[in-house]
């Protein structure tokens, strides 16, 4: 594993996180931590606060109380740009305004940048090479000159994944990532995640509804229904008693 972090320091640590959405409490008092090189899944029914939880972790939503630490450091306005550079996020639904003139090359290239103050042409050769490499990894090399507005939903998902991969990172956050991919691409997708985890030491935090895949691929699981019902290995968490508590007694197990 190439992770430069000491093993005792978690990639992500969440303490007593509570998130309000409007007047309702979407997530209450959730604590967990994610170790380097591990793949964690968040499972739970619709409206359980899974997306809210990761959006609060990523800084997209404000939280009322608790603490989020990335790579052992608290995220504030000053440290966020540096810390978040090592985090990639693949949203569930990503809508592109087709009127924005941007090619696949442009978008994936933005993933490579540090995005501070810089001259726009600095590093363009390295950027271009990294973009081609990332697109090849998701088998989308042929798409690079196309405009974003011309892509299908599945193609856009691959391109976004390339945006995440274009630079080595420490944490990849996925919100129901394979939604919109066909079965064959889905298998490729999980193969790629596995490769990133094993070969490059990435940690992965993903929301998933596919409990079979979670059982087969993930190292640990959080079962969430507004509050944390259980965390642990897939065998412990994906237990009928826990799932009944989370999804209700009508839940059918395969």
């Amino acid at each position: 594993m190439q992770s430069s972090l000491p093993t005792h320091s978690p990639i992500l640590s969440v303490q007593h996180l509570t998130v309000q959405r409007g007047r309702a409490t979407a997530v209450r008092d959730v604590s967990f931590s994610l170790a380097a090189g591990k793949d964690m899944a968040i499972v739970g029914p619709n409206g359980a606060g899974k997306s809210t939880l990761i959006q609060a972790i990523l800084g997209l939503l404000p939280y009322q109380s608790g603490e989020v630490k990335l790579f052992g450091q608290a995220c504030d306005a000053h440290s966020a740009p540096l810390l978040r550079h090592d985090v990639a996020y693949l949203p569930q639904n990503f809508l592109v305004d087709p009127r924005i003139p941007m090619t696949v090359m442009d978008l994936v290239g933005l993933g490579w940048d540090r995005l501070g103050l810089q001259l726009p042409w600095v590093g363009w050769r390295d950027r271009r090479a990294a973009v081609h490499n990332a697109l090849a990894q998701v088998e989308a090399g042929h798409l690079h000159p196309q405009s974003l507005s011309s892509l299908s939903g599945g193609e856009l998902k691959r391109v976004l994944l390339a945006y995440c991969l274009v630079r080595p990172r420490k944490l990849l956050v996925l919100d129901e990532a394979p939604a919109g991919l066909d079965l064959c691409s889905e298998a490729d997708f999980y193969r790629l995640l596995n490769h990133l985890k094993r070969e490059q030491g990435w940690s992965i935090l993903q929301i998933s509804h596919d409990l079979e895949r979670v059982r087969a691929h993930c190292d640990c699981v959080l079962c969430l229904n507004r509050q944390l019902l259980k965390q642990g290995s897939p065998e412990e968490v994906l237990h009928p008693d826990i799932l009944n508590a989370a999804y209700g007694p009508g839940f059918v197990f395969r």
């Binding site: 990523l58 800084g59 997209l60 966020a80 740009p81 540096l82 810390l83 978040r84 550079h85 985090v87 996020y89 949203p91 990503f94 592109v96 305004d97 924005i100 941007m102 442009d106 978008l107 933005l110 940048d113 995005l115 501070g116 810089q118 726009p120």
Partner: peptide, 17 residues
């Protein structure tokens, strides 16, 4: 580069800090 990302998607930009 930051302007491009903000223009394309505010959430992708926020996640990047």
């Amino acid at each position: 580069r930051a302007q491009m990302l903000v223009t394309l998607s505010e959430s992708l930009a926020k996640v990047r800090g």
